[in-house]
Write a protein that binds this DNA or RNA. Sequence first.
DNA 1: CCTAAAAACGCAATTCCATTGCACGTTTTA
DNA 2: TAAAACGTGCAATGGAATTGCGTTTTTAGG
Lengths: 137, 137
Amino acid sequence: MMKELENKLEQKEVRPTAMRLLVLETLQKQKAAVSLQDLEDTFEKADRVTLYRTLKTFQEKGLIHSIEDGTGATKYALCQEGCECAPEDMHVHFFCNSCEDTFCLPKFKIPEVSLPEGFVPMETNLLVKGVCVNCTA
Amino acid sequence: MMKELENKLEQKEVRPTAMRLLVLETLQKQKAAVSLQDLEDTFEKADRVTLYRTLKTFQEKGLIHSIEDGTGATKYALCQEGCECAPEDMHVHFFCNSCEDTFCLPKFKIPEVSLPEGFVPMETNLLVKGVCVNCTA
DNA sequence: CCTAAAAACGCAATTCCATTGCACGTTTTA
DNA sequence: TAAAACGTGCAATGGAATTGCGTTTTTAGG
Protein backbone atom coordinates (compact mmCIF):
# COMPACT_ATOMS: atom_id res chain seq x y z
CA MET A 1 0.00 0.00 0.00
CA MET A 2 2.86 2.28 0.77
CA LYS A 3 4.11 1.22 -2.62
CA GLU A 4 1.15 2.86 -4.26
CA LEU A 5 1.82 6.08 -2.44
CA GLU A 6 5.47 5.91 -3.43
CA ASN A 7 4.55 5.48 -7.04
CA LYS A 8 2.17 8.37 -6.88
CA LEU A 9 4.93 10.62 -5.61
CA GLU A 10 7.53 9.38 -8.04
CA GLN A 11 5.19 9.89 -10.96
CA LYS A 12 5.12 13.52 -10.04
CA GLU A 13 8.86 13.71 -9.48
CA VAL A 14 8.58 14.06 -5.74
CA ARG A 15 11.00 12.03 -3.70
CA PRO A 16 9.12 9.74 -1.37
CA THR A 17 10.39 10.56 2.09
CA ALA A 18 8.75 9.20 5.20
CA MET A 19 7.13 12.50 5.99
CA ARG A 20 5.77 12.96 2.51
CA LEU A 21 4.30 9.49 2.45
CA LEU A 22 2.54 10.15 5.71
CA VAL A 23 1.18 13.46 4.53
CA LEU A 24 0.03 11.99 1.26
CA GLU A 25 -1.65 9.13 3.07
CA THR A 26 -3.44 11.57 5.32
CA LEU A 27 -4.56 13.68 2.41
CA GLN A 28 -5.96 10.63 0.69
CA LYS A 29 -8.14 9.82 3.66
CA GLN A 30 -9.76 13.21 3.87
CA LYS A 31 -13.19 14.00 2.62
CA ALA A 32 -12.68 17.71 3.18
CA ALA A 33 -9.75 19.96 2.42
CA VAL A 34 -7.17 20.34 5.16
CA SER A 35 -5.26 23.33 6.43
CA LEU A 36 -1.67 23.45 7.53
CA GLN A 37 -2.97 23.66 11.06
CA ASP A 38 -4.96 20.48 10.56
CA LEU A 39 -1.81 18.69 9.50
CA GLU A 40 0.05 20.03 12.49
CA ASP A 41 -2.63 18.62 14.74
CA THR A 42 -2.42 15.28 12.99
CA PHE A 43 1.34 15.08 13.22
CA GLU A 44 2.16 16.67 16.49
CA LYS A 45 5.76 15.66 16.29
CA ALA A 46 6.35 17.07 12.87
CA ASP A 47 7.62 20.55 12.33
CA ARG A 48 5.23 23.15 11.03
CA VAL A 49 7.70 24.31 8.41
CA THR A 50 8.35 20.83 7.12
CA LEU A 51 4.66 20.30 6.66
CA TYR A 52 4.40 23.69 5.03
CA ARG A 53 7.16 22.87 2.58
CA THR A 54 5.72 19.46 1.93
CA LEU A 55 2.44 21.03 0.92
CA LYS A 56 4.25 23.57 -1.19
CA THR A 57 6.20 20.87 -2.98
CA PHE A 58 3.07 18.82 -3.54
CA GLN A 59 1.37 21.83 -4.99
CA GLU A 60 4.25 22.77 -7.28
CA LYS A 61 4.38 19.24 -8.58
CA GLY A 62 0.67 19.14 -9.17
CA LEU A 63 -0.32 16.62 -6.55
CA ILE A 64 -2.61 18.93 -4.65
CA HIS A 65 -4.21 22.30 -5.08
CA SER A 66 -4.92 25.04 -2.61
CA ILE A 67 -8.22 26.60 -1.77
CA GLU A 68 -9.02 29.92 -0.22
CA ASP A 69 -12.33 29.55 1.52
CA GLY A 70 -12.44 32.86 3.27
CA THR A 71 -11.46 31.54 6.67
CA GLY A 72 -8.03 33.05 6.37
CA ALA A 73 -6.27 29.72 6.39
CA THR A 74 -5.42 28.11 3.08
CA LYS A 75 -6.83 24.65 2.63
CA TYR A 76 -5.35 21.89 0.51
CA ALA A 77 -6.86 18.95 -1.28
CA LEU A 78 -5.68 16.14 -3.47
CA CYS A 79 -7.29 16.12 -6.83
CA GLN A 80 -9.55 13.17 -7.29
CA GLU A 81 -9.32 10.89 -10.30
CA GLY A 82 -9.95 12.73 -13.51
CA CYS A 83 -8.78 16.02 -12.17
CA GLU A 84 -5.42 17.17 -13.33
CA CYS A 85 -5.26 20.19 -11.07
CA ALA A 86 -4.59 22.11 -14.23
CA PRO A 87 -5.91 25.61 -14.57
CA GLU A 88 -8.19 24.59 -17.38
CA ASP A 89 -9.76 21.91 -15.31
CA MET A 90 -11.62 24.13 -12.95
CA HIS A 91 -13.93 22.76 -10.38
CA VAL A 92 -16.10 24.06 -7.63
CA HIS A 93 -15.30 24.34 -3.96
CA PHE A 94 -17.95 24.32 -1.32
CA PHE A 95 -17.56 25.82 2.13
CA CYS A 96 -20.02 24.73 4.77
CA ASN A 97 -20.99 27.55 7.08
CA SER A 98 -22.07 25.03 9.66
CA CYS A 99 -19.20 22.56 10.04
CA GLU A 100 -16.73 24.87 8.34
CA ASP A 101 -15.41 22.10 6.16
CA THR A 102 -14.39 22.80 2.62
CA PHE A 103 -15.14 20.32 -0.11
CA CYS A 104 -13.73 19.90 -3.54
CA LEU A 105 -16.41 19.08 -6.09
CA PRO A 106 -14.52 17.92 -9.16
CA LYS A 107 -17.58 16.56 -10.88
CA PHE A 108 -19.23 19.93 -11.00
CA LYS A 109 -17.63 22.11 -13.58
CA ILE A 110 -17.71 25.84 -13.61
CA PRO A 111 -19.91 27.16 -16.40
CA GLU A 112 -18.32 29.45 -18.94
CA VAL A 113 -18.20 33.02 -17.77
CA SER A 114 -18.47 35.94 -20.08
CA LEU A 115 -16.07 38.78 -19.45
CA PRO A 116 -15.74 42.33 -20.74
CA GLU A 117 -13.79 42.97 -23.91
CA GLY A 118 -10.07 42.67 -23.36
CA PHE A 119 -10.16 40.57 -20.23
CA VAL A 120 -8.38 37.27 -20.78
CA PRO A 121 -9.23 34.53 -18.30
CA MET A 122 -6.58 32.05 -17.26
CA GLU A 123 -7.98 30.34 -14.24
CA THR A 124 -11.26 30.39 -12.44
CA ASN A 125 -12.24 29.71 -8.88
CA LEU A 126 -15.77 29.27 -7.77
CA LEU A 127 -16.46 29.17 -4.08
CA VAL A 128 -19.96 28.35 -2.98
CA LYS A 129 -20.88 28.81 0.64
CA GLY A 130 -23.81 27.18 2.25
CA VAL A 131 -24.68 24.03 4.16
CA CYS A 132 -23.16 20.70 3.24
CA VAL A 133 -24.83 17.35 2.98
CA ASN A 134 -23.64 16.31 6.44
CA CYS A 135 -25.20 19.32 8.08
CA THR A 136 -28.55 19.48 6.33
CA ALA A 137 -29.87 16.46 8.19
CA MET B 1 -20.32 67.41 -4.29
CA MET B 2 -19.48 66.62 -0.73
CA LYS B 3 -23.21 66.86 -0.23
CA GLU B 4 -23.73 63.89 -2.48
CA LEU B 5 -21.27 61.88 -0.50
CA GLU B 6 -22.95 62.90 2.71
CA ASN B 7 -26.29 61.79 1.42
CA LYS B 8 -24.87 58.51 0.33
CA LEU B 9 -23.57 57.86 3.81
CA GLU B 10 -26.71 58.99 5.54
CA GLN B 11 -28.86 56.83 3.36
CA LYS B 12 -26.97 53.87 4.71
CA GLU B 13 -27.09 55.12 8.28
CA VAL B 14 -23.45 55.96 8.45
CA ARG B 15 -22.58 59.23 10.06
CA PRO B 16 -20.64 61.43 7.67
CA THR B 17 -17.41 62.26 9.43
CA ALA B 18 -14.54 63.96 7.66
CA MET B 19 -12.57 60.76 7.46
CA ARG B 20 -15.45 58.76 6.10
CA LEU B 21 -16.18 61.31 3.43
CA LEU B 22 -12.59 61.22 2.31
CA VAL B 23 -12.51 57.47 2.22
CA LEU B 24 -15.77 57.30 0.34
CA GLU B 25 -14.54 59.86 -2.14
CA THR B 26 -11.40 57.86 -2.71
CA LEU B 27 -13.33 54.66 -3.17
CA GLN B 28 -15.54 56.32 -5.76
CA LYS B 29 -12.57 57.29 -7.82
CA GLN B 30 -11.12 53.82 -8.02
CA LYS B 31 -11.41 51.56 -11.00
CA ALA B 32 -9.94 48.66 -9.11
CA ALA B 33 -10.61 47.37 -5.62
CA VAL B 34 -8.39 48.78 -2.89
CA SER B 35 -6.74 47.19 0.09
CA LEU B 36 -6.36 48.65 3.54
CA GLN B 37 -2.72 49.17 2.70
CA ASP B 38 -3.70 51.17 -0.38
CA LEU B 39 -5.79 53.46 1.77
CA GLU B 40 -2.96 53.87 4.23
CA ASP B 41 -0.72 54.96 1.39
CA THR B 42 -3.33 57.42 0.21
CA PHE B 43 -3.90 58.92 3.63
CA GLU B 44 -0.52 58.84 5.22
CA LYS B 45 -1.66 60.88 8.15
CA ALA B 46 -4.61 58.72 8.96
CA ASP B 47 -4.42 55.89 11.39
CA ARG B 48 -4.46 52.40 10.07
CA VAL B 49 -7.06 51.30 12.57
CA THR B 50 -9.39 54.16 11.77
CA LEU B 51 -9.26 53.25 8.12
CA TYR B 52 -9.78 49.63 9.03
CA ARG B 53 -12.84 50.46 11.06
CA THR B 54 -14.14 52.79 8.42
CA LEU B 55 -14.04 49.98 5.90
CA LYS B 56 -15.64 47.64 8.36
CA THR B 57 -18.46 50.07 9.01
CA PHE B 58 -18.97 50.68 5.32
CA GLN B 59 -19.16 46.97 4.77
CA GLU B 60 -21.60 46.35 7.59
CA LYS B 61 -23.85 49.09 6.30
CA GLY B 62 -23.72 47.73 2.79
CA LEU B 63 -21.76 50.50 1.12
CA ILE B 64 -18.90 48.32 0.04
CA HIS B 65 -18.09 44.67 -0.21
CA SER B 66 -14.86 42.82 0.36
CA ILE B 67 -13.00 40.64 -2.06
CA GLU B 68 -10.48 37.92 -1.43
CA ASP B 69 -8.30 37.74 -4.49
CA GLY B 70 -5.72 35.31 -3.24
CA THR B 71 -3.06 37.91 -2.53
CA GLY B 72 -3.60 37.61 1.19
CA ALA B 73 -4.83 41.16 1.56
CA THR B 74 -8.54 41.80 1.48
CA LYS B 75 -9.66 44.26 -1.16
CA TYR B 76 -12.71 46.49 -0.98
CA ALA B 77 -14.91 48.00 -3.61
CA LEU B 78 -17.99 50.15 -3.77
CA CYS B 79 -20.83 48.51 -5.50
CA GLN B 80 -21.69 50.17 -8.76
CA GLU B 81 -25.19 51.17 -9.63
CA GLY B 82 -27.56 48.28 -9.72
CA CYS B 83 -25.57 46.21 -7.33
CA GLU B 84 -27.03 45.84 -3.89
CA CYS B 85 -24.02 44.05 -2.44
CA ALA B 86 -26.50 41.49 -1.28
CA PRO B 87 -25.53 37.83 -1.22
CA GLU B 88 -28.08 37.05 -3.87
CA ASP B 89 -26.66 39.65 -6.17
CA MET B 90 -23.49 37.84 -6.97
CA HIS B 91 -21.05 39.18 -9.42
CA VAL B 92 -17.67 38.28 -10.76
CA HIS B 93 -14.30 39.52 -9.60
CA PHE B 94 -11.31 39.57 -11.85
CA PHE B 95 -7.74 39.51 -10.65
CA CYS B 96 -5.07 40.57 -13.11
CA ASN B 97 -1.92 38.50 -12.79
CA SER B 98 0.03 41.25 -14.47
CA CYS B 99 -0.85 44.49 -12.68
CA GLU B 100 -2.32 42.66 -9.68
CA ASP B 101 -5.38 44.84 -9.69
CA THR B 102 -8.73 43.38 -8.79
CA PHE B 103 -11.86 44.43 -10.62
CA CYS B 104 -15.46 44.11 -9.75
CA LEU B 105 -17.59 43.12 -12.72
CA PRO B 106 -21.16 43.73 -11.63
CA LYS B 107 -22.60 43.35 -15.07
CA PHE B 108 -21.44 39.79 -15.36
CA LYS B 109 -23.54 37.49 -13.30
CA ILE B 110 -22.44 34.14 -12.02
CA PRO B 111 -24.14 31.33 -13.87
CA GLU B 112 -26.18 28.85 -11.90
CA VAL B 113 -24.09 26.02 -10.51
CA SER B 114 -25.34 22.55 -9.95
CA LEU B 115 -24.34 20.93 -6.68
CA PRO B 116 -24.48 17.41 -5.33
CA GLU B 117 -27.60 16.24 -3.54
CA GLY B 118 -27.90 17.75 -0.09
CA PHE B 119 -25.65 20.75 -0.61
CA VAL B 120 -27.53 23.98 -0.10
CA PRO B 121 -25.93 27.08 -1.59
CA MET B 122 -26.26 30.40 0.16
CA GLU B 123 -23.70 32.64 -1.48
CA THR B 124 -21.31 32.33 -4.34
CA ASN B 125 -18.02 33.93 -5.20
CA LEU B 126 -16.41 33.68 -8.57
CA LEU B 127 -12.85 34.82 -8.95
CA VAL B 128 -11.37 34.80 -12.42
CA LYS B 129 -7.65 35.30 -12.78
CA GLY B 130 -6.01 36.35 -15.97
CA VAL B 131 -4.92 39.50 -17.73
CA CYS B 132 -7.00 42.64 -17.61
CA VAL B 133 -7.86 45.01 -20.40
CA ASN B 134 -5.14 47.46 -19.39
CA CYS B 135 -2.45 44.83 -19.59
CA THR B 136 -3.39 43.06 -22.80
CA ALA B 137 -2.27 45.97 -24.92
C1' DC C 1 32.21 1.33 0.26
C1' DC C 2 33.28 6.16 0.80
C1' DT C 3 32.76 10.87 -0.08
C1' DA C 4 31.07 15.16 -2.04
C1' DA C 5 26.94 17.38 -3.55
C1' DA C 6 22.13 17.85 -3.29
C1' DA C 7 17.93 17.55 -1.01
C1' DA C 8 15.12 17.46 3.13
C1' DC C 9 14.48 18.71 7.76
C1' DG C 10 14.07 21.37 12.19
C1' DC C 11 14.49 25.38 14.87
C1' DA C 12 14.43 30.35 15.36
C1' DA C 13 12.97 34.40 13.72
C1' DT C 14 10.50 37.62 10.77
C1' DT C 15 6.87 39.63 8.03
C1' DC C 16 2.38 40.77 6.84
C1' DC C 17 -2.28 41.48 7.64
C1' DA C 18 -6.16 41.52 10.72
C1' DT C 19 -7.97 42.64 15.09
C1' DT C 20 -8.63 44.23 19.96
C1' DG C 21 -8.19 47.23 24.25
C1' DC C 22 -8.22 51.43 26.05
C1' DA C 23 -7.97 56.41 26.60
C1' DC C 24 -9.45 60.66 24.82
C1' DG C 25 -12.02 64.03 22.14
C1' DT C 26 -16.47 64.95 19.74
C1' DT C 27 -21.15 64.53 18.68
C1' DT C 28 -25.78 63.29 19.86
C1' DT C 29 -29.68 63.26 22.80
C1' DA C 30 -32.54 63.43 26.80
C1' DT D 1 -25.75 70.92 29.79
C1' DA D 2 -24.70 66.55 31.42
C1' DA D 3 -24.78 61.76 30.28
C1' DA D 4 -24.35 58.56 26.81
C1' DA D 5 -22.95 57.11 22.40
C1' DC D 6 -19.76 57.39 18.87
C1' DG D 7 -15.35 58.18 16.39
C1' DT D 8 -10.44 58.40 16.53
C1' DG D 9 -5.54 57.40 17.68
C1' DC D 10 -1.99 54.78 19.82
C1' DA D 11 -0.23 50.52 21.59
C1' DA D 12 -0.40 45.84 21.58
C1' DT D 13 -1.76 41.20 20.26
C1' DG D 14 -2.71 37.18 17.33
C1' DG D 15 -2.68 34.13 13.42
C1' DA D 16 -0.90 32.57 9.24
C1' DA D 17 2.70 32.52 5.85
C1' DT D 18 7.41 32.64 4.88
C1' DT D 19 12.57 32.91 5.21
C1' DG D 20 17.41 31.97 6.99
C1' DC D 21 20.47 28.85 8.31
C1' DG D 22 22.71 25.00 10.39
C1' DT D 23 22.15 19.91 10.65
C1' DT D 24 20.85 15.56 8.98
C1' DT D 25 19.67 12.47 5.38
C1' DT D 26 19.75 10.91 0.75
C1' DT D 27 21.76 10.47 -3.76
C1' DA D 28 25.29 9.91 -7.18
C1' DG D 29 30.15 9.41 -8.54
C1' DG D 30 34.61 7.47 -7.88
